[in-house]
Computed example of a mutant assay.
Amino acid sequence: MHVRRRTGLFLATFAALTVALGGNASAHERPDATVAPDGRGDFTSVQAAIDAAPAGATEPWVIAVRPGEYRELVKVPATKPFLTLVGTGRHAQDVVIAYDNANGTPKPDGSGPYGTSGSASVTLDGADFTARNLTFANLFDEAAHPEITNRQAVAVLTRADRLVFDRVRFLGNQDTLYVNSSAAAVVARAYFRDCYVEGDVDFIFGRATAVFEGGQVHSLTRGSTTNNGYVTAPSTMIDNPYGFLFTRVRFTSDAPAGTVFLGRPWHPSNDPNAIGQVLIRDSWIGDHVGAVAWADFSGGWSWRDARFAEHHNRGPGALVTDDRPQLDRAAVAGFTVRAYLSGADGWSPRGPH
């Protein structure tokens, strides 16, 4: 099962893994299993490798994923913590894990549509999961399926705590990245380092505490001259001060100027205690974002009642207006990467600094 029973394959895979980790692969990150689409690994599917991983692990169990496209649904159960997926290509786009279900896609058994959560190409319920140097995508083709009107199509759904994504790409249209938790009263944390997230409507959403440090958030155009979608749709619970933090991120788009909003407050099932929190600080914002950067959510939920703010941004879309709340230096001091992620256990995915 493990690559260590094949010396030649192990050495080749470990060399590729070292490249994927920027030359920093260590003994505990040597692959425990290798996935390769050509059959030259231990498994030909990512899910098969996950199924073979030990339950209840207390240290990383590393799956090296060799270049190729893996068209499959992937689920990491809560019984399998500490899983690590590492793409061994030179670039994140060399390894693609993808599927194409949407909210309204009928299930094969005739029991109804998948729904938003069920549409996820990848579902993560195992704590302490890490992904590096690969791509997660939902390839649902809206134009090819006009009969499907509920087009939410999730690439990744997270519901576990202490998740790390390092140089990972997330591709989709509506609802690309669903950062959530196992229950409304549970806080789950995720850290995104130098990642790329792409979509159009509410494409980073949920109630988790999520930090995006570095990387790029790209809004696709929907062909409108007035509204090409919303970057975020947080549903942070009222007793959680930390929703989404974006720091040193580039916000880009191919949409016309002033036609994309930074976010709107999502209240699942009209929950009044879901008071979204987003802070965008020290980032670059393109001109696709205009003087009014936040929008109301349907059902009468005003963005002004949410916890939306900016600090020290730059770029043609980094406007300071009455409709763009700003935190001053004193206020923003309490909203750091460490503050968002440390929690009661002192979690520090960036290291001790």
Rank of each mutant, 00 (worst) to 15 (best):
F192N: 05
A131W: 00
S121E: 05
P60S: 04
N173C: 09
E310F: 06
R40I: 08
V278I: 04
L85H: 04
T176G: 11
L177K: 01
R207N: 13
R66E: 09
L341N: 02
F10I: 11
D125C: 14
A233R: 14
P81A: 08
L279G: 00
D109S: 02
S111H: 15
D109H: 00
L163P: 07
A25D: 04
T209H: 02
F129Y: 06
L85W: 01
E59M: 08
A49D: 12
S283K: 01
C195S: 07
F192Y: 10
G8Y: 10
G276M: 05
V62P: 02
V35A: 06
D51G: 05
V46Q: 06
T259Y: 10
L341I: 03
R324Y: 00
A36N: 12
W294D: 00
A160H: 01
P108I: 02
E213P: 10
F246C: 00
F129H: 00
V186I: 12
L11S: 10
S298K: 10
G343D: 09
I275Y: 00
V76E: 06
L319M: 14
V186F: 12
A52F: 07
E29T: 14
A274W: 00
A331V: 07
D161N: 13
L11Q: 11
G215K: 05
A344K: 14
E59N: 07
V289R: 00
L139N: 15
L134C: 09
D128C: 11
R159D: 10
T321N: 11
G286T: 01
P241G: 04
L11H: 13
A92N: 02
V201T: 12
G172I: 07
G258N: 14
T225K: 14
D94G: 03
Q174V: 13
G286D: 02
T130R: 15
A295T: 06
A64E: 04
V320G: 02
A331G: 06
G300D: 11
M237E: 06
R264P: 14
A306V: 06
F14T: 15
Y99R: 12
P265S: 03
T236Y: 10
D194A: 11
G334E: 11
N133W: 09
D166R: 06
S348E: 14
I50E: 08
Q47N: 12
A184I: 11
A15K: 15
V320F: 12
R4C: 11
D296E: 06
